[in-house]
Design a protein around this nucleic acid. Structure first.
Length: 621
DNA sequence: ATACATACC
DNA sequence: TACTGGTATGTAT
């Protein structure tokens, strides 16, 4: 049996077999791909916990039969065929690599490994907390009678399902009608986000006691750094985490699983090991981490999905440890970024910094909607208009505008098209979204679509910019890129009016916060060392430039203010007793500080990250 | 830089 | 009887 490949694993001999490796005879692209097609159709959550005694073959067959002949099915079939081709070409490419090349690659890889190894930080204790079947569990609290029945939450596509349903082979991300074929008595509940948000907040409240700067990724998942807490309380980390989980259960009735390790990557993977309602700790010890990673199937790693897994399997890399055995070969085949990623996985390295989600800079905001396939222009215009309006709402709420607009179309065949173009000025109104979106759409006619989406990038934060600054930014942009539309001062005046009509001005320090985020972001990358140097330095330069620009325009070189709440006073109770008045958040109803900034902060959080939108927006077709 | 693909929840 | 939506990021050209 394969006992560990412990401390000093052997790399596979460079004289590796061009001939003997292909164990899957992928050669018959036509027929043989039906096996992998079934695999593809099974979807992403196949290797997740919860369905032990499931007859996968039977389930797979039902899914196959249920979807056969549909447009979706045909699309998946095409994609699978393409992937199979790509995998075959990779295998061929691998066979051509000479021993000389492999030896050279070995040297390079070893240098990389030493470089990454030097960044290893074992001083922090990171926890990944993951609620078990979150939406379903929340629903069970309200409907205890459901506990014994198979049920799911979602609409059209299942978001999650309880463990009873999983026994049938029902999984998240599965189409509702397929799930009903597998489990005819399946009950499907609609999403009820306000409820989930409330529970999520209750959990986060507890998490905050252990790490006030925890990072809530979604409603049901968060990272914590409990290093300080453990030190302060002089408690063992596993004890701390099980206490935390117990408290979450006692106050919310929900069970969570947790992973504990020296960094986010290890913690995240570990949180799945003893799911549901369990925890798994990996010691902050190099050997322990390496051993944990070694036998891990590559698909368990966040960031390795179906496609990369297929490619790795074809190169005979099944487990993380085999990344090392085959590293010289992988180096010849994958890009630098992917190689860096894979080696960091093999080494069990990852980020040790945890910071609140709202300290990440948003890069884009978009809106898309599916509907029954249409080709009529009037109907498409109507859909586009809806999307444009919804996007405007998000822009107004977030106080953002975009310098680029992207149009996304999904054809009736599920084939996707995306077009992007720079805007003459930052835009954030439905009428602009519609106008420019329509121009892009018209170029694709005739077309039959089942989805239309709009997304803006190159964002401009309008929150606290005075009108003058917006004016300047518009100008600068025009000068930069030899405008595609002449910018008259009339134009800019018109835009200015549009942007600021009826929108509040106030707060003037959030932009500084924004700058801090940018700068911190780049520092983080520098420190972690796993991100390519050129990228972080470019980003740092950009951040400096922005900062300088800011100082220039405001005629002040004030030290950057610390970012809101958590960082400035995590536990301090001294100052501002007067500011502790509480009000109910209009969104989630929780008590939050009435302090203007804190409230705004909270509301923004509450509304953002996509969760509430699904509750608020009805998607009528 | 743009288009398209992959991945995550 | 009808296979999501939002965001980030990687790859290819």
């Amino acid at each position: 049996m394969l006992v560990s490949e412990p401390a000093s694993p052997k790399r596979e001999n460079t004289i590796s077999n061009p001939e003997s490796s292909p164990k899957h005879s992928e050669s018959g692209t036509s027929d043989e791909s039906s096996g992998t097609l079934r695999h593809r159709l099974l979807g992403p959550s196949i290797q997740k916990s919860g369905q032990d005694g499931v007859n996968q073959a039977a389930v797979s067959e039902i899914i196959y039969q249920a979807s056969q002949g549909s447009k979706y099915f045909e699309h998946q079939k095409r994609k699978e065929k393409e992937l199979t081709k790509k995998v075959e070409s990779i295998v061929k490419q691998a066979a051509k690599v000479s021993n000389q090349e492999l030896e050279a690659a070995e040297v390079r890889v070893d240098a990389l490994i030493r470089q990454y190894e030097a960044t290893r930080d074992l001083t922090q204790t990171i926890v990944h907390v993951d609620c078990d079947a979150f939406y379903a569990s929340v629903e069970e609290l309200d409907h205890p009678e459901l506990k014994s029945k198979p049920f799911a939450v979602g609409k059209g596509v299942l978001c999650t399902c309880n463990y009873v349903a999983r026994k049938f082979g029902v999984r998240s991300a599965m189409a509702e009608f397929v799930a009903k074929k597998i489990c005819p008595e399946l009950i499907v509940l609609r999403l009820n986000f306000p409820k989930y948000i409330e529970k999520s907040n209750a959990i986060r409240m507890i998490l905050s006691e252990y790490d006030p700067r925890h990072c809530a990724m979604t409603l049901d998942e968060a990272y914590l750094n409990i290093t300080e807490y453990c030190a302060n309380m002089n408690k063992d980390r596993e004890e701390v985490v099980s206490e935390m989980r117990r408290r979450i259960f006692e106050t919310t009735g929900l069970t969570v699983s947790a992973g504990i390790g020296p960094n986010s990557r290890v913690a995240k993977i570990a949180s799945n090991v003893n799911k549901p309602n369990g925890q798994c700790a990996i010691a902050n010890d190099r050997e322990a981490v390496m051993e944990f990673m070694c036998n891990l199937p590559v698909r368990k790693i966040t960031g390795i999905g179906y496609v990369l897994e297929r490619q790795l399997l074809a190169l005979d890399v099944n487990s993380c440890g085999e990344i090392y055995r085959k590293s010289a070969l992988l180096y010849q085949i994958f890009t630098d970024t992917t190689m860096t990623f894979l080696l960091n996985c093999y080494l069990g390295l990852g980020s040790t910094e945890v910071k609140p989600i709202d300290q990440y800079e948003r890069k884009s905001v978009g809106c898309e909607r599916s509907f029954r396939a249409i080709s009529d222009m009037a109907q498409m215009k109507q859909k586009l208009q809806h999307v444009a309006e919804d996007l405007e709402k998000d822009c107004k709420r977030l106080n953002l505008a975009g310098r680029k607009l992207g149009l996304k179309l999904k054809k009736a065949t599920f084939e996707q098209i995306s077009r992007q173009r720079p805007m003459p000025r930052p835009i954030n109104t439905a009428s602009d979204f519609y106008r420019y979106g329509l121009q892009m759409l018209e170029k694709e006619l005739p077309i039959t679509v089942r989805l239309i989406g709009l997304r803006i990038t190159d964002l401009v934060n309008l929150s606290h910019e005075g009108p003058m600054k917006t004016f300047l930014k518009g100008q600068r942009r025009h000068n930069d890129r030899l405008e595609d539309e002449p910018s008259t001062s009339m134009n800019i005046h018109a835009e200015f009016k549009e942007l600021f009509d009826g929108s509040p001005d106030m707060h003037d320090d959030e932009e500084i916060g924004e700058l801090v985020m940018i700068i911190q972001g780049s520092q983080e990358e520098d420190a972690s060392g796993v991100i390519d140097d050129y990228r972080s330095s470019a980003k740092a330069t950009a951040a400096r430039d922005i900062k300088n620009e800011y100082e220039l325009q405001h005629n002040t070189a004030t030290p950057l203010m610390p970012v809101p709440e958590s960082e400035s006073l995590p536990l301090s109770t001294d100052s501002g007793d007067s500011a502790t008045a509480l009000v109910s958040c209009p969104i989630c109803g929780n008590q939050v500080s009435a302090d203007d900034q804190a409230l705004n902060h909270h509301v923004d959080w509450c509304l953002s990250r996509g969760a509430i939108r699904e509750a608020v927006k009805e998607t009528f077709n």
